[in-house]
């Protein structure tokens, strides 16, 4: 790139080859920048190296940076070179040469930028599909799944069996259900290391978004929708779970911390909660595990309403003194 019309040289001096000079400066800068990005910056780029998705996303961001840095440096080099060499000298009142397009520069610019954009599109598509959705929510019927893993009714440590975790958003807290542990529910999230995890993200009220930052998982939590995302944690430690969809007054406070632990630590954590919830009656009080929780379809909730003398919420969960048609916000 960066080929240019050289302004008329000062009288008596041979004009140097500006294009070669600019290209040389640019090449050195670009190589240095790309080496620094790849080897020095990459390990510190978000979202870290805690899971397969996180590593993939970090690599993708590195590739973007490695490709973008030379483009940015090309523009900066040209500007810098022009400012230093082609600025107006004292006493110089002459006009610059007329510029009437340059077919070669235009063709090269269009070709190179098209190649960069199209290859990034191909790269991005590959990086989304091959790592099983790359940690993004794929909806209720995911078409990109991790290969070679199985989901069984029970989960045991050391297995390559998928751990199924349901993330439930509600104003304003996340809870988690573990169908392989009797459908027990928790406010905390522990995950076993080196284990394929299948998240089922849903909501009990408005739209939330489940964002396990260091795991590279982000999936919208829509009421009535089962949104599936996959991850395999690869490092022990803490991660943060945030709600990533404006969901009301405490949206900003809707975050918590989870932990990646060893498989046996996870097993004892999960079974201890299951035991506690069986003993104190919580398990029996929960509705059966389901991929979504439409209040009008939970029979225990319907029975609770019936005991209150309320029959049919008309599309509303809370059958208060309201008017209007379902789907419209109403005022009392």
């Amino acid at each position: 790139m960066a080929e240019s019309q050289a302004p008329t040289a000062a009288a008596g001096k041979a004009e140097p080859n500006h294009a070669v000079r600019i290209a040389s400066i640019w090449l050195v800068l670009a190589i240095v920048a790309d080496l620094l990005i790849y080897f020095v910056w990459q390990p510190h780029l978000p979202p870290g190296r805690m899971s397969d998705n996180a590593r993939g996303q970090q690599f993708d961001i590195t590739v973007m940076a490695v490709l973008c840095a030379p483009v940015l440096l090309g523009v900066w080099t040209y500007f810098g070179y022009a400012l230093v060499n082609w600025r107006r000298r004292a006493g110089d009142t002459e006009d610059g040469p007329p510029i009437e397009g340059n077919g070669k520069v235009q063709a090269a610019w269009i070709t190179v930028t098209s190649l960069i954009v199209l290859s990034l599109a191909a790269f991005g598509t590959y990086e989304l599909i091959v790592p099983a959705g790359a940690g993004g929510g794929e909806g209720p019927v995911p078409i990109w799944k991790p290969s070679g893993v199985v989901t069984t009714a029970a989960w045991t440590p050391g297995s390559t069996h998928t751990l199924v975790v349901q993330a439930i958003g509600q104003q304003w807290n996340w809870t988690y259900r573990f169908p392989q542990f009797g459908g027990m529910e928790t406010t905390g999230l522990e995950l076993p290391i080196n284990t394929p995890v299948e998240f089922h993200v849903t909501s009990l009220d408005v739209i939330h978004s489940f964002w396990a930052y260091q795991l590279g998982v982000k999936a919208d939590a829509n009421p009535g929708v089962d949104n599936v995302a996959f991850v395999k944690p690869l490092q022990l430690g803490q991660f943060v779970v945030r709600c990533n969809e404006l969901c009301g007054i405490w949206h900003g406070a809707m975050f918590d911390y989870g932990n990646v632990v060893t498989a046996s630590q996870f097993q004892s954590w999960a079974t201890s909660i299951q035991t506690k919830e069986r003993a104190n009656g919580t398990l029996a009080a929960l509705p059966p595990y389901a991929t979504t929780y439409d209040p009008t379809e939970i029979s225990q909730l319907g029975q609770a309403w019936a005991k209150l003398g309320i029959v049919g919420a008309g599309g509303y969960y809370y059958p208060g003194p309201q008017t209007g048609t379902p789907g419209d916000p109403v005022s009392p």
Binding site: Q170, Q171, D205, I249, Y316, Y318, P321, V330, S331, P332
Partner: peptide
């Protein structure tokens, strides 16, 4: 922050408006 988890905002969509959203 503290809050109630019962959707007790009578008259609001899904009971989650009004008093549920107001300090």
């Amino acid at each position: 922050r503290w809050q109630c988890f019962i959707p007790c905002g009578g008259g609001f969509l899904d009971g989650n408006g009004g008093p549920m959203q107001t300090i």
